[in-house]
Design a binder for these strands. Structure first.
Lengths: 338, 338
DNA sequence: TTGAAAGCGCTAACAC
DNA sequence: GTGTTAGCGCTTTCAA
């Protein structure tokens, strides 16, 4: 049906080998035949069959991407970074959503392997070490993103949540705040734990008191931010600044504060985390920490492809990216004399 | 390196043909040999080579997805719908972002074809009819999403923007509003034109005056919404309700209204379009029209795969999906007596 | 019920 | 500089 290398060989009166040679820019072809072959290729509208090529080369120039959910606002930019870099390096990307379901993760890996992808970038559920181990055994090229499964030896690109929370908190402290509260994320998640850890570290570093009643667990939802902020506001001495583990909870906190007739940042400073779209749109603009999502994707893709092409051997490589503080209007200086 | 059908054939003392037969659940294999083969497969940890299979079958069980940008909030859900449905039907998806760049679109199509995908779901820039024509000529399975290139014969899944704008406007009218304004999208886009058209149709249908000064062109940005709302507010008779062609502009309009010390919806009702995340988070909650993005993806994938598998012949098929009104707090009843 | 052989479209030794 | 041949891993006639 489709025009093959054979067709163009026949038409050009050369062997398929010769055609293959010009196709792949190999030397040892006279300019004359090369020109002729090229002409025929153009005339017949030839498009090489990557599948056939993949079979003999044992290489598909395709990588797999396994993520929990492309609809999670963290991932589109990551995926975009991966695809852009992959494309630039000559690779395509097949993607799967798993919803952190172990069965689906296994299915995705098996499928990707049967499609003979050259490598896989993945973000697996923390408990799924088995699959990673299998991949490891086969020495399959893999790069983990966003989360690193403990004990796995594959290279990793992650965000430094501890440092990020530390920096967010430090910013608040440097603004003059002494009574700092933290609405944590779900403490069942590594991210939630890390951000809490960073918060604590900053307090310690600046010799500020650690108050249990100033640390309340949320679940990343706006509602939980609202609820926990209310709790914070009813305490005898209310905090003058709060770090919410994500922007959604920060926005929930906004509402609780407005409900109390207080002002941001005059009465209370709020800092969030993630820099979702809403952060720049809401009033006052939410000061937050932004994650280098696109860059994370790019780096992961580059690492994987280097590994695939044997340009990189260090399997233990761990890239930890820093977030960046975005100062908007929800945070302000504080002076306890006033 | 990897274990092949040959390895398991040897180990099981049968021919590769027999192995292939049990792999594909073909009849004419004795239960005994079948069992034995299955055992060996398990023992050796065999994973079929889809590339080799694809070569002989001329079928890869892979589809392509070409979109402008996965970071555009419209697409993640669409992509998710496509991937979920594809997976359910046994297909994988390779995706490309093109930024509406014609060169990149061509590149993506060529690459996908060389990867021998079984079909493509795409959203091309409106001017890129050539590529579509080529695909058409080859009778390649394609489904267009979001936008239909005029004159193309491929099946399409789109959102009915005219009807959607009509319904948004109608809702405002039924609330009692008689002075309706519209901040349009970029009128260089089909979407912008269609939403304006729907607005006009509703006015006409309800015998309301069409006022040029009540129709101001924006560019989908929050800033343009702000600016045009200001213009609206400075007119002698200001509108009591405005339909913004997207939520971002609606939110810009919010700010202009607040700047004037006016209240939503008491002084002015606002309705947006798209139901982005922010719509439910901002106060007052933004009434808007939501697009069935996930469903659009699912339908597109199902249409494409049916076509690939020859279960569907009607190439002219056009599915037009309706949006749904989400009533929040930015719209209220109006009575001109008051 | 089973196997031998051909071939999918391509690349790579190897020979000329 | 060019062609012959074999083979990548699989499915599918066709014959036994």
């Amino acid at each position: 049906m489709s025009v093959t290398i054979k067709d163009i060989a026949k038409e050009a009166n050369v062997s398929t080998t010769t055609v293959s040679r010009v196709l792949n820019n190999k030397p040892d072809v006279s300019d004359k035949t090369k020109k002729k072959v090229l002409e025929v290729i153009n005339k017949l509208g030839y498009n090489p069959n990557g599948i056939a090529r993949g079979l003999v080369l044992q290489k598909t120039y395709t990588i797999g991407l396994i993520i929990p959910d492309i609809c999670n606002p963290f991932f589109p930019e990551v995926a975009r970074g991966i695809q852009d870099k992959a494309r630039q390096l000559g690779y395509s990307v097949i993607f799967y959503n798993t919803d952190n379901n172990k069965q689906r993760e296994k299915e995705a890996i098996d499928l990707l392997k049967s499609k003979q992808v050259d490598g896989i970038i993945l973000s697996l559920s923390m408990s799924n070490k088995e699959e990673l181990d299998k991949l490891e055994e086969e020495n399959f090229p893999v790069v983990q993103i966003d989360r690193k499964i403990p004990g796995s030896i594959f290279p990793t690109v992650t965000i430094d949540n501890i440092l990020s929370a530390y920096n967010a908190t430090k910013y608040l402290i440097e603004l003059g705040h002494k009574y700092l509260a933290h609405i944590t994320g779900n403490l069942g998640t590594k991210t939630g734990q890390d951000r809490l850890e960073g918060f604590k570290q900053a307090l310690k570093e600046f010799n500020l008191d650690y108050k249990d009643e100033y640390i309340l667990e949320g679940d990343y939802s706006k509602e939980s931010g609202y609820k926990q902020m209310k709790t914070l506001l009813t305490q005898k001495k209310r905090p003058t600044a709060v770090f919410a583990a994500n922007d959604l909870m920060a926005i929930g906190a906004y509402e609780a504060i407005f409900d109390y007739g207080l002002k941001i940042p005059e009465d209370i400073s709020i800092i969030g985390h993630d820099d979702i779209d809403i952060a720049s749109i809401i009033r006052p603009g939410l000061t937050t920490m932004t994650q280098p999502k696109y860059k994370l994707g790019q780096i992961a893709a580059e690492m994987l492809i280097k590994r695939i092409e044997g340009l990189e051997s260090d399997n233990q490589q761990e890239v930890v990216l820093n977030t960046e503080l975005i100062v908007r209007d929800s945070t302000g200086g504080w002076n306890d004399e006033e």
